[in-house]
Design a protein around this nucleic acid. Sequence first.
DNA 1: TTGAAAGCGATACCAT
DNA 2: ATGGTATCGCTTTCAA
Lengths: 354, 354
Amino acid sequence: MKPTLQAVADAVGVSRSTVSNAYSRPDQLSATLRERILDAARQLGYPGPNPTARSLRRGFVGSIGVLFTSQLSYAFTDPFAVRFLAGVGGAAERHATSMLLVPLPPGQTDARRAVENAAVDGFCVYCVADEEWALDVIRDRGLPYVSTAARDDAGPDERFVGIDERAAAHSAAAHVAGLGHRRVALLADSVLPGAPAGPLSLSGVHEAGHPTTRGRLAGFADAFAEVGVGWGELTLLNAPGNSRQAAIAAVAGLFDGPTAPTAVLAGSDVLALGVLDALAARPDRDRPPVSVTGFDDVPEAAAAGLTTVRQPAEEKGRIAAELLLDPPADAAAGHVLLPTALVVRGSTGPVPRS
Amino acid sequence: MKPTLQAVADAVGVSRSTVSNAYSRPDQLSATLRERILDAARQLGYPGPNPTARSLRRGFVGSIGVLFTSQLSYAFTDPFAVRFLAGVGGAAERHATSMLLVPLPPGQTDARRAVENAAVDGFCVYCVADEEWALDVIRDRGLPYVSTAARDDAGPDERFVGIDERAAAHSAAAHVAGLGHRRVALLADSVLPGAPAGPLSLSGVHEAGHPTTRGRLAGFADAFAEVGVGWGELTLLNAPGNSRQAAIAAVAGLFDGPTAPTAVLAGSDVLALGVLDALAARPDRDRPPVSVTGFDDVPEAAAAGLTTVRQPAEEKGRIAAELLLDPPADAAAGHVLLPTALVVRGSTGPVPRS
DNA sequence: TTGAAAGCGATACCAT
DNA sequence: ATGGTATCGCTTTCAA
């Protein structure tokens, strides 16, 4: 039987309140009594107040949750996610708060359960596909949250940190358009839930599944519309999952034939790196080069010479956590838009003359 | 006022037990009643049983903790730690368990508190410097744990997953010794707590602070003892923290002079990469090459051509979590030794003729 | 199949 | 400065 606070109280001959005070409100008792209590506790092997019981009574837990769409192991594989987590972790640490990574099992019911059961004081919602149900649960629980993917129907009081996806994507696409590219493929993760890797046809951007994907595709499309290339003329490529493998599968066969795209705009660096892999693996190396852009500017992008859109990953995590841990009094300050920047490296160039 | 289980019970006109059963033991009531209850709950915005209260009553939480020495943000910066976390995360996910990252604030008292307050069912103890106090707290709390750093006084029933640090380090050092190197520097993280970056003098390996560091240094020393180079002839270098920066600081000025070491054996890839950075930054590029070895074989090592000792990072995390989540009946199976392998790449070579 | 009652282990108010 | 008492929100025998 593990000793309880009661046991310590009995041993010292004081009341539970006093023992509790010895731990949580040292100023409420004499230093000597406190020492006596702490000694007895040590003697008995009492490890201090039970965290669960304490949380129940106090009404808060001392940890914040981070919600992920997919596999937890994926979160650690995606360089952007890792930087984001580092930011959250740093802020949590500074607030003496733990960080609960909540994996969402497949299936709405189970996933719901996971959000309902998480012992946390609030959530950073990192990119949950179709996150509305998750936010509903969080709100029902009365917990605060910060989302990082802009949502179409965000309330004005909703805390958010992110970027202007559309404008950022536009900057990359405008760069490519400026280089003269007109036959272009757009590659994105989970364009349609469940769709296989490869070309896909959508009547418009609004049909895309994930809000982030939607925003980036829209930005790409904007830039090409400006130079007279309509949505219908762009090749849309789906990658089922944000991985190099998925990208490689998505562009299989894409570069064969005389009307192959001269540029690929990817919705993430990881996908773009996959495209570069695929390009490098082509047997005939002296075919005209294909321009490729990414998104995020993860550490690997620099080494690969990838032209991409930089967004501050760690900053995003840090701010998300801070918005949660000490909410700004001013509601407007709860909505943070981070700067982005086009980083031009070697992976983009002028259209090769045919 | 958030609705409680009681409120739902009242609304439907049943007892709390029945509502509780509707959530946790569906087989204990009729499907129709259950539906009626769940509907009412939805109506009231009741988000399901409060996780904290449930945990208190049931006696378990549904999450496992991961303990880190240092900054949480560091955990995400160190590639080995990230792979380890990915392993833990994957296993946790498969067991429908969350993962609590518990940052340890500086200062024993606060750090203790953090371990005492973590709402978890057990701990994976990842490399806590002088971890004895942490293990004491965990044991007092009556929680199971798995440690990943071999400890000198581990009980036989103590669950563990790791490698034979000494033998693994030996393999790297033997390789370097075999190449003819005799003037060698050993570089490790936190050789002595609080010591600055740079050379350090220790009467023996046993004085090194961290058990992992101790094991690796011992293995290095073993191999050189075998070729007649004693401990006193080896240059010992301290890096205060496992980072490239720390390594760069530690080797400052090391390669000047005619009796500079011809090889550096680092206790981690990150440190080794720092040494390579420092070497690459030397103004005079045509000085004789210095051999460098790392430890871990993180993803970056391959690209850098680093000779290193591979250990299965993700596997280590996965097994740690599994040892915790379903403990083997056989106590001996609770002690897992993972294989390591020397990976020879370009960063080591024969001693340059002088 | 359902309900009553007894905690799980602690905290906080209000007296003393 | 200390103690009494009423919760915090739920689960779980056990009896009906």
